[in-house]
Design a protein around this nucleic acid. Structure first.
Lengths: 236, 236, 236, 236
DNA sequence: AATGAATGAGTATTCATTCAT
DNA sequence: AATGAATGAATACTCATTCAT
């Protein structure tokens, strides 16, 4: 029996869960509520998902996979290419650009990447909120936020490191660079998405104003990151 | 029956609640668990607190009050004083220092303030984790993180604004300044505290290394903030 | 879609149900489990059977019908014949044999009958286990074990009584004979079958040893039954 | 608030559970029903017991402990004593009595023991029914009936064996003796208790008639056991 | 004959909270 | 101040059964 909107039941369940989890948190969301919101029978939820946690896991994995794709795409089409062309060299202690033009190009590209990431984050802010929420709880759920840390860390499985390394052998992030990127790049973006609606209400800014403000302010950080890279990058 | 350590029952309840809330989140923490961890009878918790929420509220309020005190203390002994001495003028569009020395003094003081705040945040990281956790849930609990936003916003009740204004009449934060301070200053510090233990484990840094790294990296931000203040400060 | 082995779906359902019911009991067996084990779609089970109970009923009825056949076959070819030949007379208070040879023949035949019954019971032990299991529950299901009692009781519908009566008019079991046969003949055999696998594991005997031991021990009972029949048989 | 009869709540829960489990089986009994029957709040059941299974376990353990006590008591005051006085010698291949009088005494004592056991079994028939019921299910619950087998087996932990051995060093049950005792002594008694009410209804006997019939019939078995002991006992 | 999707009515278990002492 | 017992209202999850195809 086709009920609710034209969307398939499974889809509706996920959408409802995203909405509710991001509003009340995982624990405070009742499976009953998800069923009502999705306009499906509660038992059907258990037909499609092993249990409540399984719904959350599905959502989070989808998000992370997409985030990786976007990032790798950027690295491939810009960083790797610049290294390949000899415009950029990631030295043990700093980013070295062949000339000012290359540096500006790099900053510009990075800003564009930020733009894309921030837009994606805003779009998926509900799920990001959940991810942040759950990442703050120990024991029960794996800390999914920290899976993101793998993208900034010198992890062997980090596809980003792999990609850059394949272009520039002796490359490694310093501990401080990792920390900087995590707390002053990833965390602000994630928080921006997570608190987007709250902040919008408090600040009384329009969507466009809010987004543009955040991106403009981010540019300062990006500039700091490039200029200050001599402090932040260090040899292995 | 006097059980547990010499600490009073009420104290033990709060300590246990802090620990558990910060680990599992408010919703997932059972009053039973708190009672066990505090080594008191469950009913005694209801003797000291109206209900579960009441325990949380008490903890969060304590934290916020302390945070305000520390901040106001800094403003009073440094900012207000510099304004009073004419060394600093908060113009509509930028911070104006009477000379480079004043600027350096300001940066140094701000760094020291950061140090103190970060140390306090690390100390209280359990409660901060809760605060962050709960701030991500709508509806049920007031968003306590956003009470912090009052400290960076042009809010009439903001005691910080009040204090500065009393020294410098026509002072106001630009929207962008507020956003910057919120997402690139408060949020990183709060996140740093909230994720402190997780990050420490992942990064394998010592307490000292972690703290010092964060502070060093923060300095870059502080510098950006002062230098970039021409972009960030604007008239109302 | 033809799945599983060549066996027809209906067959596979029954086999799976036998196995599962005998392992977990009727209530604890899920229709889902049966479907999985039988490698059929759950709904197909409802195509072949009215409901879950219907599967059980089918199995139990098959078993009972076979048991009756085996027993009647024995009565016909041995007891009735002996009575007919005048070798055996079932008197109000005892079995009377025309001579020692007849008695020995009777005992031997009875032992052979036991052998056949025990072998059949071992073969069908799964279903017997179910039958025993369900016979211990009131209310919901008819007590199928007690349908067996009909075979030892002076019941008018008892085909065994009917058969013997047709050969020996004034024949009747005493109450004690009925009780003896039920608790020291039927119950041990049924239990032997039901607990066969458990007992085998605990005793570490081989199939042959176990079967033979049981039959040998049964002979003692059969002998007691014939010798002690003066106590056990009594007029109505 | 004291509700229901004067009996304590915990007691009432156990009584209700015994009644219901023995009527419908463990699986088919609802915790709700137990609560209603015991006239307590459902949650109180979980205050006293970890879960549903825990109620069952408590009941079964109580029963088994009592059964052991009764048996050991008998062994101590009769068997051990007879061995000690030299009246009875458990030889490798048979029970050897110093004279006919001793044999008769032994049989008589054993009959009395049976009487006591049967009376206890009748009294506790509800729990025994559960025990039998659950012993027929694999996997989920330990087979508690088989804990009884420990009492007839050459198990090292068998307190009965221990006790007899302490009086008569080279004593051991043959496999067949074990099997005999299990299927023709324990099982009939247990079944008698389990099916007591059903049997009574079917047979239309009074309690006294039923009990006495069973005991009289048992005597035949006891006699077989003693006389036939030459087959059943064998050297280690 | 066969199946994926759907559902109503449970079912064990949990939990914040209260009460009597 | 402290506690053992008690409770109402949920809550996640299950399951036999049905339906449309």
């Amino acid at each position: 029996m086709e009920t609710g909107s034209g969307v398939e039941a499974r889809e509706r369940i996920i959408n409802a869960a995203v909405e509710l989890f991001s509003q009340k948190g995982y624990d405070a969301t009742r499976v009953n509520d998800i069923a009502s919101a999705a306009n499906v029978n509660k038992a059907l939820i258990y037909y499609y998902f092993k249990n409540k946690q399984d719904i959350l896991d599905f959502m989070v994995h989808s998000l992370l996979n997409n985030a990786v794709s976007i990032t790798l795409d950027f690295i491939h089409t810009h960083i790797v290419q610049m290294i390949g062309k000899g415009c950029l060299d990631i030295l043990p202690d700093r980013l070295h650009f062949v000339n000012e033009e290359a540096k500006q190009e790099f900053i510009q590209n990075t800003c564009k990447f930020y733009e894309r990431v921030v837009d994606y984050a805003i779009e998926k802010r509900s799920i990001i909120r959940i991810l942040m929420l759950e990442s703050l709880k120990n024991g029960k759920h794996q800390n999914s936020l920290f899976q993101m840390m793998d993208f900034v860390a010198n992890n062997e499985n980090n596809p980003i490191i792999k990609t850059i390394s394949s272009a520039d052998q002796d490359f490694a992030y310093s501990d401080e660079m990792v920390l900087f990127r995590f707390f002053f790049s990833i965390i602000p973006i994630v928080s921006f998405a997570a608190y987007y609606d709250d902040y919008k209400e408090v600040s009384a800014l329009s969507d466009k104003e809010l987004r543009d403000s955040f991106l403009r302010v981010s540019n300062i950080i990006i500039a700091s990151m490039v200029s200050g890279s001599d402090i932040l990058l260090r040899s292995k």
